[in-house]
Simulated assay, not measured.
Amino acid sequence: MIDRIKVRLFLGILFSCFFGSLMAQNTDLAEGDSLFLEQKYTEAYDKYRALFQNDQASAAMLLKMAFIQDGLGNYTEALYFLDKYYRMSADRNVVGKIGELSEANDLSGYSYDDTDYFLALLEKYQLHFTLLLSAIMIMLSVYIFQKSKDKEKPIAAGIIQLIVILCLFAVLNMKAPPKAIVVSNNTLLRSGPSAGAEPIDMLSKGHKVKVLKRDEVWTQILWDGREVYVRNGKLRLI
Results as ranks from 00 to 15, higher is better:
Ile5Thr: 09
Ile5Ala: 04
Ile5Gln: 10
Ile5Phe: 08
Lys6Arg: 07
Val7Ser: 07
Arg8Asn: 08
Phe10Trp: 07
Phe10Tyr: 09
Ile13Pro: 05
Leu14Val: 05
Leu14Met: 06
Cys17Phe: 10
Cys17Glu: 13
Gly20Lys: 00
Gly20Arg: 00
Gly20Ala: 00
Ser21Pro: 07
Ser21Glu: 10
Leu22Tyr: 03
Met23Asp: 08
Ala24Trp: 06
Asn26Met: 14
Thr27Asp: 12
Asp28Ser: 15
Leu29Cys: 03
Ala30Pro: 07
Glu31Met: 10
Glu31Cys: 15
Glu31Lys: 11
Gly32His: 03
Asp33Ala: 12
Asp33Asn: 09
Leu35Lys: 05
Tyr41Pro: 10
Tyr41His: 03
Thr42Trp: 11
Ala44Gly: 02
Ala44Glu: 01
Tyr45Pro: 04
Lys47Gln: 12
Tyr48His: 06
Tyr48Val: 09
Tyr48Arg: 11
Arg49Thr: 08
Ala50Asp: 12
Phe52Gln: 04
Ala57Asn: 00
Ala60Gln: 08
Ala60Gly: 05
Leu63Arg: 09
Ala66Asn: 08
Ala66Asp: 07
Ile68Tyr: 00
Ile68Gln: 01
Gly71Ala: 02
Leu72Ala: 14
Gly73Gln: 01
Gly73Trp: 01
Tyr75Asn: 04
Glu77Thr: 05
Leu79Met: 01
Leu79Ala: 01
Leu82Ile: 00
Leu82Ser: 02
Asp83Met: 06
Lys84Thr: 05
Tyr85Gly: 01
Tyr86Leu: 00
Arg87Ala: 06
Arg87Gln: 09
Arg87Pro: 04
Met88Cys: 05
Met88Ile: 08
Met88Gly: 14
Ser89Met: 03
Asp91Val: 01
Arg92Gln: 12
Asn93Glu: 10
Asn93Ile: 05
Val94Cys: 03
Ile98Trp: 02
Glu100Leu: 15
Leu101Pro: 05
Ser102His: 08
Ser102Tyr: 07
Glu103Gln: 05
Glu103Thr: 06
Asp106Gly: 03
Leu107Ala: 07
Ser108Pro: 11
Gly109Phe: 12
Tyr110Ala: 05
Tyr110Asn: 06
Tyr110Leu: 03
Tyr110His: 10
Tyr112Thr: 10
Tyr112Gly: 11
Asp116Glu: 03
Phe118Gln: 10
Leu121Met: 04
Leu121Thr: 04
Glu123Leu: 11
Gln126Thr: 06
Leu127His: 13
His128Lys: 13
His128Gln: 09
His128Phe: 12
Thr130His: 03
Leu132Ser: 14
Leu132Pro: 10
Ser134Phe: 04
Ile136Asp: 15
Ile136Tyr: 12
Ile138Phe: 09
Leu140Ala: 04
Tyr143Phe: 13
Ile144Phe: 02
Phe145Leu: 13
Phe145Arg: 09
Gln146Gly: 15
